[in-house]
Amino acid sequence: MLTIQNLHVHYGAIHALKGVNLHVKNGEIVALIGSNGAGKTTLVRTISGLIRPSEGRVEYETPGTSVDLAREPTHRIVAHGVAQVPEGRMIFANLSVKENLELGAYSRSDRKNFSSDMAEVFRLFPRLKERLGQNAGTLSGGEQQMLAIGRALMSRPSLLLLDEPSLGIAPALVQQIFKTLVEINRAGTTIFLIEQDAYLALETADRAYVLETGEITMEGKATDLLKDPKVRQAYLGEMAT
């Protein structure tokens, strides 16, 4: 579904991504783990068109079409079925929960299934329904994350990109949100998950990649990576023996 080939991104003189190759297959949950500054957010922003690569392709395929997202205008990418849940949630604090969800459906021309989609979001996150008329800025961190995910789902994406969904959220809510992500995936949405909490990400994902200073250093099934001594040492806090 998503194939990234030889992706290079520069910030001025800084070479942030150095030839990244990865792919996400239809129906999978793929995780990308790595420490601060590895280039995780750069990668997700390149996929969603907020940053332009200096080299490489971001091939996105759905039955019948194939586009290079690196060459599409940013606002068209959502219409192709790629929705992003940005890092730090980025909800519209001065708008109500309902208005935030409405904006999620902005790129859709059909309003037909609008209310049933909203009902689906409320089924996944009942908390949002209770807060419907409230200003989004008054929600707790976890609730804001739920709203950001719900907002992205309103565009009916085939591929959902999540950038650090566990960031700054109470552990109990994190568990709940990740359970919901699995549920969303079972319902047919492919998920590409960027996460610093390696254990959580590897528990949730089918496959995973490890990104270190702009390069993919490991890849494989999530269960295998979870057992890998190098991963355990670098990302799961296990002492070297």
Binding site: T74, H75, A83, P86, F92, N94, L103, S155
Partner: peptide
């Protein structure tokens, strides 16, 4: 208002 609150988030919604 979405643009006023957060331009990047607005862009990411299409």
């Amino acid at each position: 208002m979405a643009i006023r609150d957060d331009e990047i988030a607005a862009l990411s919604l299409g």
